[in-house]
């Protein structure tokens, strides 16, 4: 529980990424203890995710928008966050998740669940050819976050280094727009 309600609220969200950007955030190491003092982490895979809360000050998004669930989440995040940061190349350009955009969805599924899998035995009703129950529909293309919602700051890198993330966080918390170009770049 946070003791000071005045602490800025930070959220980190993982859409279609490899979690490497979140790992880079964890590479803050000892500085995680400082971060814990400076902000209240209200939503994050590493902390305490419940429903994405209202009134978030800064939200870092890792990953591209690939499924209907991602799209829905992105919209909710925008509505409830003051500043939205695209963290890492997947969020900024769709990067690796976007590599599937050269193919049709059906071709991707065909490879994964038909060619590279056993055929279901006759009479096995539950084992349909394709996963459809309780899994979100895939968007036709994986897109960068800013194709779905307005984004306030772009932090490229695959992943951006812990130093770059630290600069972004400390500058934003100080009320300034960080200049990230010297610390990270596309593909870094």
């Amino acid at each position: 529980m946070s003791t000071t309600p005045a602490k800025p609220k930070l959220a980190t969200v993982w859409l279609d990424g490899c979690s490497g950007c979140h790992m880079s955030l964890l590479d803050l190491d000892e500085r995680l203890l400082i971060l814990a003092e400076k902000v209240e982490v209200v939503y994050s895979p590493a902390v305490d995710p419940k429903e994405f809360p209202e009134g978030v000050d800064i939200t870092l998004i890792e990953g591209a928008v690939s499924s209907e669930e991602d799209r829905h989440k992105a919209q909710l995040i925008r509505a409830r966050s003051r500043l939205v940061v695209s963290l890492g190349d997947c969020a900024v350009t769709a990067n690796v998740p976007g590599m599937r955009n050269y193919f049709e969805k059906d071709e991707l599924f065909q490879r994964a669940y038909v060619e590279n899998a056993d055929a279901p035995a006759a009479g096995e009703a539950r084992r349909a050819r394709l996963p459809v129950l309780g899994v979100p529909a895939l968007c036709p293309r994986a897109t960068p976050v800013h194709e779905v919602i307005p984004v306030d700051l772009f932090v490229p890198g695959c992943p951006p280094s812990a130093e770059a993330i630290w600069l972004v966080l400390t500058e934003l918390l100080a009320g300034r727009m960080p200049q990230v170009a010297e610390l990270t770049r596309f593909g870094a």
Partner: peptide, 24 residues
């Protein structure tokens, strides 16, 4: 609930790219 399609989308890419892409 996540599907990424690596097994398909690497088609046509140079083999030497695989370590870098697959790590992701």
């Amino acid at each position: 609930t996540q599907f990424r399609g690596f097994e398909k989308f690497v088609e046509g890419r140079p083999m030497t790219e695989m370590p870098g892409i697959m790590a992701r």
